[in-house]
Design a protein around this nucleic acid. Structure first.
Lengths: 224, 224
DNA sequence: GACAATTATGATGACTTTGTGAAAGGCCGG
DNA sequence: CCGGCCTTTCACAAAGTCATCATAATTGTC
């Protein structure tokens, strides 16, 4: 899966930009709508929007209406931006199926944290999610790897090794470290065993095999 | 290397100071909160808190609640300080996602050991330390060097040597000192070897190579 | 400026590390 | 018990690195 799409709906462009900036920094793809109708249009015309952030206060069609409208077709998670301490609204919102509230003004941390919490809850990211790096998808639950969408056959150790690599992308890993983590730490075999597995992994990964880089005198590094 | 941030939450200032002292001695950066709400505020307003140490017994919002709240947004490791032998609590805690327990009274050794164990587990120690000096970025974890944002290829020894230089910028380093630190201390080879490596480093670093300065009759110094 | 000491440079061969293919050993299902 | 797959080991080839040396250049001293 590529980046996660989030739709931000607010009539104030300043606020949209603010929210967008934080999310973009976290590698989300952000779509914007300046009013309720536009939001609905964009939502229906774009596949795979994972989350909607909705301002309550908007002219013409307010956040509640947009929420209601969307809820009649979709279970997409919705976060509402409310004015501070508007409890009455919050109660109303939970009935409509709002997932979270963030009251303005909010800190970027809170925003990002709630977004991630929700996405984790809805399994868009997080534990069971597929780790996806540069066209390589590692599905730990299914113990399956896809390259450019096509499944490839890996043995147990190969899978474990690749998983360890993608989970530590960009980090130089010594053979010792790899042994301790992929093999049991009480394994006292030959460190060259890793080389053989790396070789097999590389060959099975085709051109993507280059992502597993040799750091001479040190170990390996997975980097896209 | 940037220091690792740890948040200590306890209503007793004496206890906070105690814990803080041990951790500061180990070069951690310690933030303090005297109650749950403050803890949450500090946590959300500070980027990169690597670990939270949480006292269970606190007025108003107790440790469990704080833990629960944080867990809904973050996977940051949490250590709980409990009264001795409160097993019921511990069971409750593991459900909430507590990583470790330390029962009071505890020895500084235990505290520091557990902290380090957890940080090691979550790969915080030494992970993202990028030393950046005058357009030269040394990423120890990735074993990678960038000059003005562009990666350059260095051999193992060259990397080690450059790292030693940037970690000791502004300090004149004798050949003997360099040998002892970059080479194994039992290396008894020719000190002239360093010259050769310095030469290669300088050439690979382009104009930034001038930062490695010769101190005639003495050794080298890295200075921007 | 001449001389001695120190450092820079370029080349080279020994050495280390890694890649690869083959083969042995182990485990599991049939 | 057999056959197939996976893992590990091994040996050799290939690639890359490092220490050393000789020579040139530079610096400091007189």
């Amino acid at each position: 899966m590529e980046s996660v799409k989030i739709l931000v709906v607010d009539d104030e462009s300043r606020m949209r930009k603010l929210v967008k900036d934080f999310l973009v920094k976290q590698n989300y793809e952000v779509l914007e709508a300046s009013n309720g109708e536009e939001a609905l249009d964009i939502f229906y015309e774009n596949k795979g929007i994972a989350l909607i952030i909705l301002d309550v206060m908007m002219p013409k069609m307010d956040g509640w209406e947009v929420c209601k409208e969307i809820r009649s077709y979709s279970d997409v998670p919705i976060i509402m931006l409310t004015a501070k301490g508007d409890e009455r609204d919050e109660l109303q919102g939970f009935d409509l199926g709002v997932d979270e509230y963030i009251s303005k003004p909010f800190s970027p941390k809170i925003l990002v944290a709630r977004v991630e919490a929700i996405l984790r809850r809805s399994n868009v990211i997080g534990a069971d999610a597929v780790i996806s790096v540069g066209g390589i998808e590692v599905n730990k639950a299914a113990h399956q790897v896809k390259i450019d969408g096509k499944p490839i056959e890996l043995s147990f150790k190969e899978f474990e090794l690749l998983t360890y690599f993608v989970e530590n992308k960009g980090i130089a890993l010594s053979r010792e470290k790899i042994l301790n983590n992929v093999w049991n730490y009480d394994y006292f075999g030959d460190a060259r065993t890793i080389d053989t597995h790396v070789k097999k992994l590389r060959s099975k990964m085709g051109s993507k095999g280059e992502y597993i880089r040799t750091i001479w005198g040190m170990g390996y590094k997975f980097e896209v």
